[in-house]
Design a binder for these strands. Structure first.
Length: 491
RNA sequence: GCUCCGGUAGUGUAGUCCGGCCAAUCAUGUCGGCCUCUCGAGCCGAUGACUCGGGUUCGAAUCCCGGCCGGAGCACCA
C-alpha cells in the first residue's frame, strides 16, 4: 500500500514520454497547416491530419493555418467551405489564419512567370499522350528548348487558348528514374466556372505548384501529409530549389483504413445522390458528422489519432477500438435511463398494493449527486420481448420493482425483494411504465430504426446528450421534437 | 509493368536510428473469476506478436542480403 505512490509516479512519467514523437529540426516558430480540398465534409482521415497538426502546434506554441485548396474548379462542393469549418470546430481544432487558394490565383501567375524568367519552366503545347510517350523514355519534347522570351510570349497567350492546348511545365530531371517526377505540370487551362470566383481566370495552378508557393510564402516549417504525397514532396523540392527557397520538413504518414466503412468523399456523394445514404451524416459513413451523430466524442478520436501517430506504415482502425476509448469517456458522463425496444405489454396479476407507487433509481450509479429519475409503477409495464422469451419458465426481476413469473400465458407477481430474485436466479431487466412513456426511436449503425418506448424522465434530456439506455447501450439523443430519436453509439 | 515505401499479439502502439537491461510496452478487444438491482463500470487473472530464410556477431525485433506479403505513386485531381 505504502509503495503504491512510488509505482504510480514511475508509471506516469513513463506514459508521459510516450505519445507523439517530436518534430525534426525545430528552430524558431513552428508553422503548420491543414489543407483540405473543399470537395465535401471532413472524414476520419482528415481528422488525423487536423489533430496531429493541432497537437504539434500546441506542443511548440506554433501557428496553424487552415488552407482551402480549391484550384480545380471541377472538384469543389461550394458547401464544403463551411462544412469543413464546422467539422474542425466540432473536433476542437482552432486555426490562427485561414486562406483560400482561389483568392490567390494572381499570385500563382506571378510566381509562374518568375519561374519562366528563371528558365526553370516552359510552355508545353504537346498533346498529353505524346508528351507522356517521350517522358516515359526519358526524352524531352521540343518545347523544353524554347527560349525564355518565347516562353513568356506563349505564357501571355495562354489565357486566350482553350483547355488542353498548353500547359506550363516545371523543369526537373527528364532522366529521373521515377517518370512521375519528370517535368511536371505547374499551370493548366480550365474552361469551367469556379464556384467561388466564377470565370475570372482560366489558367489555374496545379496542386503541387500552388502548395509550394503557399507553403513558402506562409512560412510553413513542417508539412504533415499522407504517404500518397511522397512523390509530390519530391516534385515540390525541385521548385524550392529553382526559387532558392528553404525546403520545409516533410513528414509522411501511412494510409488509414476504417473497417467496413466506405469512404471516399466521391463514393459517399454518389450514395447520397442515389438515395442510398440519408446525407453526409448517415451513420454508415466515415464522415466526422456521421461519427459525432453516433455519440463518438472528439476526445476519443483525438486519443486514437495520437496513439496512431505519424508512422508511415498503414493502419486499420477498428470500431471496437474507438468504442473502447469512447466508452471510457461516456461511462462517467452518460446518465442512465430505461428504454425497451421490442415492447410487449405485460399486466402483472396479484400485485400487492404495497408494491405499487413511484420507483426511484439513480441517474448514475457512481454519481449519486446527480439525483434520481422517477418511474411510476402500477403493475402494467412494457418489457422487451426477447427478455420474455428467454425467461418463460423462470423468475424475472424488474429493476428496483418486483419479481414476476409467467404461467399459462399470464404474468404473475412472484415476490418483491432483490434477495428473493437472487435466490431464484432471476434475470434483472429494465422496464417502462405503460402510462406516460414516450415513444422513442433508435437509429442503428446500419441506419435501421428500432422503435420503442422509454421511461418518462427521458423527456428531460436535451439533444446531443449521450446517455446509457440500460442493458441496451450508449446512445446520443439526436432530437427530442417532434419525436425522440437516439443514435446508437455502442454497448 | 515501372518507381518508392512498409511488415511487433485480433486491432492500434512502444522498442528498431546508437545490437545485449526485450523470454518484448501500453491501449483496445477476447476469455474466466469476483463484484454490481444494467448485457455498463470496477477489481483480479488469462490469452496473444517480433513476416520467412540466410548472413554478420559472443549476442539481432534491432545491422546486411534474398524471398513472401502488403501499400502508395506512375494525371493538364488533391
Amino acid at each position: 500500500m505504502e509503495n503504491k505512490g512510488i509505482f504510480e509516479t514511475v508509471k506516469e512519467r513513463k506514459t508521459e514520454e510516450k505519445g507523439l514523437v517530436d518534430l525534426p529540426n525545430v528552430e524558431g516558430e513552428v508553422v503548420l497547416r491543414f489543407a483540405p480540398n473543399p470537395s465535401g465534409p471532413l472524414h476520419i482521415g482528415h481528422a488525423r491530419a487536423a489533430i496531429l497538426n493541432q497537437e504539434y502546434v500546441k506542443r511548440y506554441s506554433g501557428k496553424l493555418i487552415l488552407r482551402l485548396e480549391d484550384t480545380d474548379p471541377r472538384r469543389i462542393d461550394p458547401k464544403a467551405y463551411q462544412m469543413i469549418e464546422e467539422d474542425l470546430t466540432w473536433l476542437g481544432v482552432k486555426w490562427d489564419e485561414k486562406i483560400i487558394q482561389s483568392d490567390r490565383i494572381t499570385l500563382y501567375h506571378q510566381y509562374a512567370e518568375k519561374l519562366i524568367e528563371l528558365g526553370q519552366a516552359y510552355m508545353c503545347t504537346c498533346p498529353g499522350d505524346e508528351f507522356k510517350k517521350l517522358k516515359d523514355q526519358s526524352q524531352a519534347c521540343s518545347c523544353r528548348d524554347l527560349s525564355i522570351d518565347d516562353n513568356l510570349k506563349l505564357w501571355k497567350e495562354m489565357p486566350f487558348m482553350s483547355e488542353g492546348e498548353a500547359v506550363l511545365r516545371v523543369k526537373t530531371d527528364i532522366q529521373h528514374k521515377n517518370p512521375a517526377i519528370r517535368d511536371w505540370v505547374a499551370m493548366r487551362i480550365v474552361d469551367f466556372e469556379h464556384p467561388r470566383i466564377g470565370t475570372l481566370f482560366n489558367v489555374y495552378p496545379m496542386m503541387n505548384f500552388a502548395v509550394t508557393v503557399d507553403d513558402h510564402l506562409l512560412g510553413i516549417t513542417h508539412v504533415l501529409r499522407g504517404k500518397d504525397h511522397l512523390a509530390n514532396s519530391e516534385k515540390q523540392e525541385y521548385l524550392y530549389h529553382h526559387f532558392g527557397w528553404t525546403v520545409p520538413e516533410f513528414i509522411h504518414y501511412g494510409r488509414l483504413k476504417m473497417e467496413d466503412v466506405a469512404l471516399s468523399t466521391s463514393q459517399a456523394r454518389k450514395g447520397i445522390n442515389d438515395g442510398l445514404y440519408t446525407g453526409w451524416d448517415d451513420p454508415r459513413l466515415g464522415t466526422l458528422r456521421a461519427i459525432s451523430k453516433r455519440g463518438i466524442k472528439k476526445e476519443a478520436l483525438k486519443e486514437l489519432m495520437l496513439e496512431i501517430g505519424v508512422k508511415i506504415a498503414d493502419t486499420t482502425i477498428s470500431w471496437k477500438k474507438i468504442y473502447g476509448l469512447n466508452r471510457n469517456l461516456l461511462e462517467d458522463e452518460a446518465n442512465r435511463y430505461f428504454a425497451v425496444f421490442h415492447p410487449e405489454k405485460v399486466i402483472i396479476e396479484n400485485l400487492p398494493e404495497s408494491d405499487k407507487g413511484v420507483i426511484k433509481r439513480l441517474k448514475h450509479p457512481d454519481f449519486p449527486d446527480r439525483g434520481y429519475r422517477m418511474l411510476p409503477f402500477d403493475g402494467i409495464v412494457y418489457l422487451d420481448q426477447t427478455d420474455l422469451e428467454r425467461n418463460e419458465s423462470k423468475v424475472l426481476r424488474l429493476m428496483d420493482a418486483v419479481n414476476i413469473v409467467f404461467k399459462d400465458g399470464k404474468t404473475i407477481f412472484h415476490s418483491s425483494s432483490l434477495e428473493e430474485a437472487r435466490r431464484s436466479n432471476a434475470q434483472i431487466v429494465q422496464w417502462v411504465p405503460v402510462t406516460s412513456s414516450p415513444d422513442v426511436e433508435l437509429v442503428m449503425h446500419d441506419n435501421t430504426i428500432l422503435k420503442g418506448l422509454a421511461e418518462p424522465s427521458i423527456e428531460e434530456l436535451n439533444p446531443n446528450d449521450v446517455v446509457q439506455l440500460e442493458r441496451v447501450g450508449f446512445a446520443r439523443l439526436d432530437e427530442i421534437q417532434p419525436k425522440i430519436r437516439f443514435y446508437f453509439a455502442h454497448k
